[in-house]
């Protein structure tokens, strides 16, 4: 299995802060765009689709497609429209129509 998106950073020295993604600690550049920072950290499962239950990852990066949807501190948000803050609690947005997440 290949790793996620490979991204070359032109600004490697940004200060990092800790966030939780699906219960695991990640270090991301503070104030950076959340979707981009997660992609750079090798994450590519953001939204889980309602029927096939497959993972989606950011497609448009400008608030159009909703495929970057995450639960950010319990609220579903487009991660491409959010900036990284220390201590964020992030989870993939589960949109299964059945099961424990059916209400989302």
């Amino acid at each position: 299995m290949k790793p996620g998106l490979r991204l070359k950073s032109l600004t490697p020295d940004a200060p990092l802060v800790e966030v939780q993604f699906g219960g695991e600690a990640l270090m991301l550049p503070e104030g950076d765009n959340l979707a981009a920072a997660l992609l750079a950290a090798g994450i590519d499962g953001f939204r889980q689709t309602p029927y096939q239950g497959v993972a989606r990852a950011p497609y448009c990066m400008m608030g159009i497609c909703f495929d970057c949807l995450l639960e950010v501190d319990g609220v579903s948000q487009q991660s491409c429209m959010v900036q990284v803050r220390a201590g964020m609690d992030l989870r993939p947005a589960r949109q299964r129509r059945e099961g424990p997440y059916a209400s989302l």
């Binding site: 996620g4 998106l5 490979r6 991204l7 070359k8 950073s9 032109l10 600004t11 550049p29 950076d32 765009n33 981009a36 920072a37 992609l39 750079a40 590519d44 499962g45 993972a55 989606r56 990852a57 950011p58 497609y59 448009c60 990066m61 400008m62």
Partner: peptide, 20 residues
């Protein structure tokens, strides 16, 4: 995953300094 708009990649470059 891994498929994006070319403009989306450009947004990451301008905004975060990240090149796909």
């Amino acid at each position: 995953p891994g498929v994006m708009g070319a403009g989306a990649a450009q947004i990451m470059l301008k905004q975060s300094g990240l090149a796909v």
